[in-house]
């Protein structure tokens, strides 16, 4: 329970600082400044990674709930999908595979000699 509160406070501090940064310099959305700041403060040891780990992973695992209000907005687009559904899906598929091939080919060519196996994977 203590760790949950610790995680909430850590994330809130980063988000509030992100908002302040955004209001001063603009640019990225506030939450992205918050994300980078959170990563930096964990790296510097200002926040204890062991304490946030559990609650943080729980949060990431369940964050899908926040997307539903946006996703339901599809309700206003039945007509668009009737008219352009195939084009939309085709554009998504084609560009996704261009991106995957591009990154895959370049990484295979330039980075494979430098890499070592990445260790611990956290599920989220």
């Amino acid at each position: 329970m203590k760790n949950i509160i610790y995680t909430i406070i850590a994330i809130s501090i980063c988000l509030i600082s992100g908002r302040m940064l955004y209001s001063v310099i603009g640019g990225l959305p506030a939450s992205l400044y918050g994300m980078v700041l959170y990563c930096i403060l964990l790296q510097l040891g200002w926040f204890n990674p062991d304490k946030v780990q559990q609650a943080n992973q729980w949060g990431i695992k369940h964050m899908g709930i926040c997307f539903i209000p946006a996703a339901v907005g599809i309700i206003n687009h039945f007509e668009l999908f009737q008219k352009h559904g195939y084009s939309i899906v085709a554009i998504i598929l084609v560009t996704t595979f261009i991106l995957i091939s591009f990154v895959g080919i370049l990484v295979e060519k330039y980075l494979t000699t430098k890499s070592k196996p990445a260790a611990d994977v956290k599920d989220y």
């Binding site: 994300m35 959170y38 990563c39 964990l42 790296q43 990445a118």
Partner: peptide, 16 residues
């Protein structure tokens, strides 16, 4: 909750 969820992604970034 989208905003705190985004901030929380800083943790896996830190790990990797």
């Amino acid at each position: 909750l989208l905003e705190p969820a985004t901030v929380a992604l800083g943790f896996p970034l830190y790990q990797q």
